[in-house]
Computed example of a mutant assay.
Amino acid sequence: MHLEPADAGEVSLWLSDAEFDRPTSDLIERLGGDEELLLALQLSGFADRDWNPVAEELARYGLAVITSWIHKRTIFSKVKRRTGYGLPTLVDWPGDQHTVVELADDVVIEALSYFKNNVLIAGKWDPTKGASLRTYFIGQCLFRFPNCYRRLFDAELLRRTNEIIADDDSIALVARTLHGIEDAVITSDAVRHALRSITTPRARSALVMHAQGYPYQEIADYLGIAGGAKAIENMITYQKKRARRSS
C-alpha cells in the first residue's frame, strides 16, 4: 500500500536540531547559510556540481538522525505526530543492524529526491517561516518513512509466515480453517484458493498460527498487532467469512 501525505511540503516547528542528538553540520554555514545556498542552487538550475555536495551532506545528516531514531524506536511516535500515520510494529523488529541501515538508506534516498524536486525546485520551502534546511529535510524523511517501512515490514511478515508454514500439513490446516473443510483430504486447488483469499501477510500468519492452535493473544504479540486477542479474533473471523463468500 502506497501512502500519500496530505501535505508533504509542510514541516511544523516541533522539529528542531536539538531533537536529533547530533551535532549540526557546518556545510550550509560554510556555503553562506540556508537562503544563500538556495539562491545559489536556483541560479545554477540545481546543477549536479552544486547540488551533489548539498545532497551528500543532507544524506549523511539524515542517515545519522533516522538510524538513531529507528534504534531508539522513537521513529514511530515522530512519524505519527508529523504525518498522522500509525504504523504496525513488531517487538523485536527491526533489530539487526543490516535491516536498520537498509531502512534508513531507503528513507533518505526517497526523501532526497522528493526534497529536491517537490520542495526546493518547486519553491515550497520558505526559510522565513523558521524551519532550517536540515529541519525541513528531516521532516521529509518522516513523510517518506511509512512507505519504506511497510515494504520491509510486509517482507518480514512474509518471511515469518513462510517459517510457520513448514509443510503441506500446515497449509492444509489453513484451508480447513478458512473453508470449514472436514474431509481429511485437501486438494491442491482448495489450498491455493484458500491462500489466495487471504488479503495480507499478517492475516496469513494469523490464520496459520490459529490453525496450529496458538491463542489469540500470543498471535497478536508475535505479529505486533494492536488490539491484542480481540483484534486477532476479528481478523480471523473476517478472513473466514471472506473466504467462504468467494468459494
Rank of each mutant, 00 (worst) to 15 (best):
R242Y: 05
Y222E: 12
R144V: 13
H179E: 11
D106H: 09
E182P: 08
G130R: 03
G224E: 04
F20D: 03
W93K: 05
L112E: 00
L87W: 07
V208H: 09
R196S: 08
S247M: 03
Q212L: 14
H71T: 14
D169E: 08
P23C: 07
T89V: 14
D168F: 14
V191H: 05
V79E: 06
L37D: 01
A59Q: 11
K124E: 12
Q212N: 12
R244T: 07
Y214R: 06
G84T: 08
N117G: 10
N52S: 12
Q42W: 00
V191I: 13
H2S: 10
E4P: 08
I232M: 09
K241I: 11
V101Q: 12
L31W: 10
Y85I: 08
P146N: 10
I171P: 05
D105I: 10
S132C: 03
V65R: 06
G227I: 04
V185K: 15
N117T: 11
A231L: 07
F153N: 01
A131P: 13
Y214D: 07
L87E: 07
A64D: 06
T89C: 13
L133N: 04
A194V: 03
Y222T: 11
P127D: 01
G227C: 04
H98Q: 15
L15P: 08
N117P: 01
P94I: 04
H2K: 10
L142G: 04
E163Q: 01
L157I: 14
K72P: 08
P127I: 03
E218G: 07
A211P: 01
Y238N: 12
G227A: 02
I198V: 05
A184D: 15
Q239S: 14
A131R: 12
C148K: 00
R159W: 04
L3P: 09
G9P: 02
E56M: 09
V174F: 05
S132E: 06
L3S: 09
V91S: 15
F145H: 04
E10S: 14
G213F: 11
S205I: 07
L63I: 12
N147A: 00
C148H: 01
P94Q: 03
L41F: 06
A64C: 04
A203W: 13
T187K: 12
Y222Q: 09
P88T: 02
L152F: 00
D169V: 07
L112Y: 00
V65Q: 08
D34S: 08
K116S: 09
L157N: 10
T161C: 06
V119Y: 03
R81W: 05
P201T: 01
W93I: 05
L120F: 02
D167F: 01
